Simulated scan of single mutants.
Amino acid sequence: MKDLPEILAIARTVGWGAAEILQSYYHGTAKDTNLNVQYKQNEPVTVADVTVSQYILQNLQAALGQEDFAYISEETYQSELNHNKNWVWIIDPLDGTSDFIEKTGDYAVHIALVKEHRPVLAVVAIPEAGKLYYATKDGGTFVETRTDAHPLELSLKDASKRLEDLTIVVSRSHRNQRLEYLLAHLPFHNQKSVGSVGCKIATILEQQAEVYISLSGKSAPKDWDIAAPELILTEAGGKFTHFDGTELRYNTGDINQWGGLLASNGQYHQKLCQEAEKILAQFETPSA
């Protein structure tokens, strides 16, 4: 098997290629500009999703083979995982399909390599920002454009910032009553609506927000929504955990990430997790 730096170089190249294909559909320069929007489990799927999924899988498999790795993509995922590999690629070819269709610009490509349930390599490409974030376990986070690359580290330069003054980045579309209650009772004065988990985490990395919360309802975010964004955040010094502080696990047989998840720049992380749990307990056991 190739070493991690070689694998990362391949994944970055594939990430940029995927970003170019998505932009060709987004800006109407693809050969066929009809997105042919369909719905799978109430979620939109376009020709762009499928085309980019094929592109990523074909290129990764051509470079790395299928002997050492299993491959899970949102567009090809089957409920039964027939593999016994320790190394698994978890891919979302187009995270933020609704935003892609609605032309908000908040869409991303997620490519993560998971070893024994934890991410060890991640690429998050944000086409409309012209940026690609990448990280390896214990190797830090980097951001690159077509002309430049540099390390990215979260600095709590304003460590005296009050809890109320933090900005929480929230979903435009995935909302439910419990999440609305939680957001209403958390102390934040500032909310920023952003599509795509990758774009939300980039907002924290770019220090335009400090916190992101995911709370499952009838459905939950999937492994491919979270794995790559988690690693680029944590390797930059942020935190991404369940509300009870436990780490996230992937490729467990259930691709859903149930419960409450909290991502932050690291400031007040444990306190925010505890506060979220307390507020949800009040929601679920209302006073008589």
Rank of each mutant, 00 (worst) to 15 (best):
Q257S: 06
Q23Y: 12
L8D: 11
Y107K: 00
L248D: 02
G15Y: 13
A125N: 10
V143I: 11
V50K: 06
I279K: 06
I126P: 02
Y26D: 03
Y107T: 00
E235W: 05
L163A: 01
Q267I: 06
A19D: 14
R118F: 10
H174A: 13
Q66T: 15
K271G: 00
N86F: 09
L179A: 04
A9F: 10
T141W: 11
E277Y: 02
T76L: 07
G130L: 09
K40V: 10
K137R: 10
R178E: 15
V37S: 00
A11F: 15
W258Q: 11
Q78M: 08
A129H: 07
A236D: 01
L215P: 06
A11K: 12
Y25E: 08
Y71P: 12
G266Y: 07
L179F: 15
E43S: 13
L113Y: 09
S193K: 08
L186I: 11
D138M: 07
L4N: 07
G217R: 08
S155E: 15
E6A: 07
L22T: 08
L233P: 02
T145K: 02
A125R: 06
A281V: 11
A281M: 08
W258G: 07
I204E: 04
Y39M: 05
H117Q: 11
Q282K: 14
V197G: 01
V194I: 15
A184G: 14
V52H: 09
G130S: 04
Y250E: 05
T167I: 14
L183R: 02
S173N: 11
W16T: 09
G17V: 03
K239E: 05
S155V: 13
Q177R: 13
L248T: 00
D3N: 14
H150I: 01
P119E: 05
E235S: 09
I101Y: 08
K192C: 02
M1S: 12
V37Q: 01
L280T: 07
D165T: 08
A184K: 15
S155H: 12
E247F: 09
F142C: 03
K2P: 08
N265K: 07
R12H: 07
D225V: 08
N82Y: 12
G260K: 09
G65W: 15
K115Y: 14
H83E: 13
S196L: 08
D158N: 13
D158F: 14
K192Y: 14
S216N: 13
A48C: 09
G245Y: 00
E6D: 09
E230D: 05
G139E: 13
V169F: 02
R172W: 04
V169W: 04
L132H: 02
K103F: 01
I232V: 11
N265D: 13
G139C: 10
P127Y: 08
I255D: 09
I126A: 01
C273H: 01
S216W: 14
N86L: 11
D92Y: 13
F243P: 03
V52S: 09
S24H: 06
T46F: 12
A227E: 10
E206Q: 12
G139K: 07
L166M: 10
G217S: 13
H150L: 03
L132P: 05
